[in-house]
Every structure is written in C-alpha cells, then in structure tokens.
Design a protein around this nucleic acid. Structure first.
Length: 675
RNA sequence: GCCGCAGUAGCUCAGUGGUAGAGCACACCAUUGGUAAUGGUGAGGUCGGGAGUUCAAUCCUCCCCUGCGGCACCA
C-alpha cells in the first residue's frame, strides 16, 4: 500500500500501482472527466501512470496554468499527425513547446506555405474532435528503430540513437498515430480544445546546425481558452505598433535604403535622440574615464597582430585607394572594434603602475559585415556606434573595476527606465586563447564579483552562468535588460581580455621596476547606440520621457492672430533650453492637435488670442485629452525641470531618487509599460 | 549564408498580358477655426534592377538587389 496525500492535506492509502485516473474516478466521475493530468510531488505526469510510492497528488485540469504546456505539447502532436495524414511523405522530427506556443519541424522536399494552413488547421480540428486517448507504451530501442526505419522516418531514428542507453523509449499513441515522446500528455486529444492557431512557416536547420539539411518549421500557439488566444493575438498587434522600424518612419527618425544595407540614415529628430543618449553617457563618464578617438581605418597588419584578421576576416570590411595608379595600395581594415586602437594609445609613452587603472572610452563607429539574413532595422546593422571603453588595470584591481563598471551599467539602465536586469557570467568556450590557469583565475574573480553583484542588489538583480559562452579571449559578464513589454535585450558587457595586451606587447612599469602586462577589460553599456536607440523606441513605444524626446515642445496657434505670441513663446522655451517647434500653419487646431499627437509630440502648447492677452499657454500632454492653462514662465519652468536628464536631476536634488521607469504625464507619474 | 514570402507615388495599399489607381502626405486657392482630419484644384510613378518569352511585360520565366518572418551567426 502507498500513502497518497491530497491538496487539502488529507491522506489515504491505495494499492501500489494504482493510477491517478482510478483515484480521481473513485472520488467522483466528474473529477476524473475534467482532470487532464496529475502532478506527483509537484511533477507533472500522465494521469494513467501507476503510482508506485508515497506521493502528494494534485489533479490538473485544463484551466490549471501547468496545463498550458500540456495543451501546447499535445497540440504539437496533433499538428504532426495532421500534416502526415495530409502529406504522408513528410517526415516528422521534433516539436517542442516554446515561450508563447510551440513548433514542429518537418522534413519534406517542398516546404509548407501559409496556403497550407487552413487545411492543416481543419485536419487538426478533426483529430481533436475524435478525442482519441493518449496512451503511453515503452518500447525497446531496437523495436523503435525498426519501426521508424520501416516508415522512412530517418530523423526519428537519429533521435533514438541520441537517447542515452538505459533510458526508456516512450511512445505515445493518439488513435492511429504515434510519436516518440518524453511526455507527459493529457488524457486525450479532445482536451486540447480549439483555441489554437498556426502562426508562421520558417526554415530551420536540423538540430540547429547550419551544416545539416534545412527542415520546414511550422510555428503555432494554443491556449486553454479562446479569450486567451485572442488576447495574445492582440498583444502581438500592440507589439507591432511599437516596432522601431515603423515608429522610425512615422516619427521621422531615420531610414534605410538599398544602397546602404545595414547602415542608418539618421534624420534630424533621430539624431537628436541618438546624441541625447551619447551626451548622457559622456556626462556619466566624466571624471572616471578619458575619452579618446582612434582611427577608422588601420593597416591590415594591425588586425593580423590583434588576431581579428584570422578570427573574423569573413565579417570585416577592408578599404583601399580607389585610384588605379595610387602609390599606396595597402589594404586598410575598417575597424570592427575599438580595442586595438586603444591599445596603441596605451602603448604610446611608458605607463607606470601609478597610471592604473586607466580607463579609456570612445564612442567609436565600427563596421562589421553581418550576414545578409542577420540584419534587422537598428537592432542589427553593419555600421554602428559603441559606447566602448577599455580599462587597463592590474590583477588586483580587476574585481573592483568590474564592480565599478557594474554600478555604472545598472544606474544607467535605471535612468533609461529599465529595472529588471539579469547579469550572466559567460565562461571559457572551446575555441579560446590563454592558459587554463589564466581562465581559472579570471573566472574565479568574476564568479566572486557575480555573487557580490547579486548580494548588493538586494535581490533585484538576477544572475546566471552561461557555460562555454565566453569570448575566445576571456570570460565576460553580459547584462540583459527587460523592456516594457517583457522582451529581453542583451546590451551591456564586461569582458576580460587575456589576448590583446600580450599580442600587442602592452606593458606598464610596476613598483618593482619590472615590465608587467596589464589586464584589459572591455566594457560597453548600451552596446550599440543604434540598437539601444531602437530598444528605447520600442520600450517607450515612441512615447519618450521629456529628456529624451527629440522635440519636447510644440507651439500651436489657433489662428494667425496668435503668430507673434507663439513665436515669443517658442523663443522663451528655446532660451529655457527646451527643444521646441512652432506650427503656424493655416489649419484648424483640431487638425494640428491630431497631427502632432500622432507624431508623438510630448507637450503641445496651444496659444490663441486669450493666451496672448494673458501671457499664458494651454498645455496638452501626449496621451491625455485634458488641457491646463498656465502662466508662460511657470509652464516653462516646470517643463525645464522635467526635461532635465535623470543624472542632472540628481545633481540638482541629490536626495531625490531617480526613477527612470516613470514618465510624467499630466503631472502624474506613469510607468512606461502602461502607456 | 540557408528556407519561405514580398518589392506599384513620400506613406498605406488596390490593380491588369495592351506602359497604372485610391486614401493620407505634398503644392496652390478659398476658409481664420479653442484641443485627434475644412472644402476645392493640382502635381507626383522607366510598377526594385537586369535578361528572356511575346506583336506587346508592371503582370509570365530566369538571375541579381533590397526588405520581411524564421534558422544559423553575433569579436
């Protein structure tokens, strides 16, 4: 007999091997009917599984959050059956649950297209309506291999070969169809319900390896209820409205064109935003870092020395004199990184241990030849600006420098409105330079730093370790921030480099008069400013806090009678340091309000006869219908204060805690994600 | 780079084997209005580029470029 404990704390004895289904049925037939799976000591299992030990049991129904994964997983099986029944020559491979849905990879000469979706969905509904039970069988390796080999399912055979010897091979049947699967599953296909949708087709390499054949992947999603599915689809639409490429066009921030694949044409407003970010970073560096600027193109030999020519040649641009008769036909490399240049600056003149730590920053423009399929708006470009810096220090200073960088990164993110941060330590990759002893040492230091980061944050910062994900030249921290709609972006990075100082022969004179190789730390906070701008656009949905908004104030006239006063207001706003535009066009005020609201102007100052007579302005904030009348000087003083970047606000009111996540709207503080 | 899809006016999109259309934006005219679209007129396109099929190609075929969705990559 075994002891089974129920969620209410009651315990009962049952014969060993009794199934969850039998227990549920014993309690009530309706419980058995609505239960799709069980959890034993918190672990999901098939309801039909025999229970062979004392356990805490929970009956999971469709509405249980844990059932969502089962619904999706079961739907993946049904998708595979549907596809194979429509196109029997198709081989099935894998079909995992992913965030927000699931996919299934198929091998077929002709890839699926969106036109196939209605037929597949129809077939899936048929299979679900049949409501065949999911039943589990355990097969031997030979039996399974023979079965799938006979069906021509070569990928499944490969999968079986990859399963560790000794593990059970589980087969799940759903009526006529079956699949190799780890499980668990719900009791029958009918439990999936009809709140599912095929989303898109895509190519994907078998086992994620680009040397392998490409399969055709069908992405889909499923929910317990239709309302949930509808909500999800709605969220996708909302996310699309934030797309920085769309907002970049609508807000006239930047554009791309064919002649410059992966390179940005920044328009005045976009460049103002971009430069606003750089100005902020410059202020944050002042005092601690020296800003430098290294050449854009340097002789190929320097990149051979740095190792880039060997490691990344495929991804670099090179330039040469265009003149056929030029006396110098050397190849110059368009810099893909700033570090070799910075090492040259470090090496210029003897350095003493007293000069360390030496922190060298550059807003350097780098070019990398990204694969054509990799480009994506501002997020992945071929020419971009890094907020890059290199810290030259001693071994002893390494931990402290990492922590100092950490403080700078976290406070910067907070100023930009990001508060959910994950810090990941990436350790030695297979392909690397430097002795194991060096790696041991650096990883130990960084491991300690990581623990301290977590401890310092009081639980706000999550940490993780990515084994084997380090750069070839050293371990690194990666800073991942979460935006207003829950997407994660890796931006900042702190990387220890064992390679470069030695390759270039950089050294300093230590206290004992001996030459020593400095430790070099690469670090970036925003990473690519282009990409960071894109992230900010999407995070704020174009609805920037005042300090970032390219045009902060727009003065609108009601009739031409207000023109003179409007110009006066704009002049005064400009003197107050605000970025201001005037709209004197002969258009109705409703027209102007609509247009500038769509363009996401944060503050509209409407002026007419009344305002001109009283020296006031009528203020309308983006996202609000309300208007507030205020004296001109008072209004400008208020806006001037609000427009102060967070770092300068701190200087003015040292006690005030910066809260970059909040945006002021009509005097109310609003979290960016709720805009 | 790989798989699939797409490219028509500044933007969003319709369309046809007989060299093109709408709305918005733009220009001009009238209108001078109190917080999300005033009316009229006009201008604007070698239909991504090249080659082929055809009497005739924006439309069909092939190649290339660029973009989009994924995959792979991301120093």
């Amino acid at each position: 007999m075994i002891n089974v404990t129920f969620p209410d704390g009651a315990a009962r004895q049952f014969p060993e091997g009794i199934s969850g289904f039998e227990i549920a049925k014993g309690i009530s037939p309706s419980l058995a009917k609505r239960t799709v799976a069980m959890a034993l000591d918190g672990v999901l299992a098939d309801l039909a599984d025999p229970i062979t030990r004392d356990a805490r049991i929970e009956f999971v129904n469709r509405d249980d959050p844990r059932a969502l994964e089962l619904i999706r997983h079961d739907a993946a099986h049904v998708l595979a059956e549907a596809v194979q029944s429509l196109w029997p020559e198709t081989q099935v491979t894998i079909g995992p649950v992913i965030e927000n849905g699931f996919y299934y990879d198929f091998a077929r000469d002709e890839p699926f297209s969106l036109e196939d979706f209605p037929a597949i969905e129809k077939k899936m509904r048929e299979i679900i309506a049949r409501d065949a039970a999911f039943t589990k069988e355990v097969w031997t390796r030979e039996q399974a291999k023979a079965f799938f080999a006979a069906k021509g399912e070569n990928y499944k055979v490969e999968l079986i070969d990859a399963i560790p010897v000794g593990d059970d091979l589980r087969i799940y049947r759903q009526g006529e169809w079956l699949d190799l699967c780890r499980g668990p599953h719900m009791t029958s296909t009918g439990k999936i319900g009809n709140a599912f949708k095929l989303m898109k087709v895509a190519g994907a390499y078998w086992r994620g390896d680009s040397n392998n054949p490409m399969l055709t992947r069908i992405y889909a999603t499923a929910f317990a209820k239709q309302e949930d599915l509808d909500l999800y689809l709605k969220q996708l639409e909302e996310a699309e409205k934030r797309d920085h490429r769309r907002l970049g066009r609508e807000m006239d921030l930047f554009h791309f064109q064919e002649e410059g694949p992966g390179t940005v044409f920044w328009h005045p407003k976009g460049w103002t935003l971009f430069q606003g970010i750089i100005s902020y970073m410059r202020r944050r560096l002042a005092g601690d870092y020296d800003e430098v600027n290294a050449p854009q193109i340097l002789d190929k030999s320097l990149w051979e020395t740095s190792g880039h020519w060997d490691w990344y040649r495929e991804n670099m641009f090179a330039a040469q004199s265009a003149g056929d008769e030029a006396e110098d036909k050397r190849w110059f490399v368009l810099k893909p990184m700033n570090c070799p240049g910075h090492v040259q600056i470090f090496k210029h003149g003897l350095k003493s241990y007293r000069d360390l730590p030496l922190r060298m920053a550059e807003f350097g423009v780098v070019h990398r030849y990204e694969a054509s399929g990799a480009m994506h708006g501002l997020m992945r470009v071929r020419g971009f600006t890094q907020d890059d810096a290199h810290v030259f220090c001693t071994e002893d200073q390494l931990a402290e420098e990492c922590l100092k960088i950490n403080d700078l990164i976290l406070s910067t993110y907070s100023d930009f409105g990001f508060d959910k941060i994950v810090v990941k330590l990436s350790t030695r990759p297979e392909k690397r330079v430097g002795s194991d002893a060096l790696w041991d040492h650096a990883e130990a230091v960084m491991g300690r730093v990581l623990k301290q980061i977590e401890a310092q944050s009081g639980g706000r910062i999550q940490t993780a370790v990515n084994e084997g994900e380090g750069a070839f030249y050293g371990p690194k921290f990666e800073y991942v921030l979460r935006d207003a709609i829950g997407r994660d972006w890796q931006c900042g990075t702190t990387q220890v480099d064992f390679n470069l100082p030695e390759r270039f022969g950089a050294f300093y004179i230590d206290a004992d008069g001996q030459k020593k190789t400095p430790v070099m730390v690469h670090r970036a906070i925003c990473g690519s400013i282009e990409r960071f701008t894109g992230i900010l656009i999407e995070h704020f949905a174009g609805h920037f806090p005042l300090w970032l908004a390219p045009e902060q104030v727009k003065v609108l006239t009601i009739t031409q009678d207000g023109d003179a006063y409007a110009r006066e207001v704009a002049e005064a706003a400009k003197r107050a340091g605000l970025r201001v535009g005037v709209d004197l066009r002969n258009e109705k005020i409703t027209y102007k309000v609509r247009e500038h609201s769509l363009a996401k102007a944060p503050v509209l100052l409407v002026v007419g006869k009344k305002e001109a007579a009283e020296r006031t302005v009528s203020i309308r904030r983006l996202g609000s219908q309300e208007q507030r009348s205020m004296g001109l000087d008072q209004a400008l003083a208020m806006l001037q204060l609000e427009a102060l970047p967070p770092d300068q606000k701190r200087l003015r009111a040292p006690d005030a805690v910066a809260d970059g996540a909040a945006v002021e709207l009509d005097g109310k503080r609003v979290v960016a994600g709720q805009l």
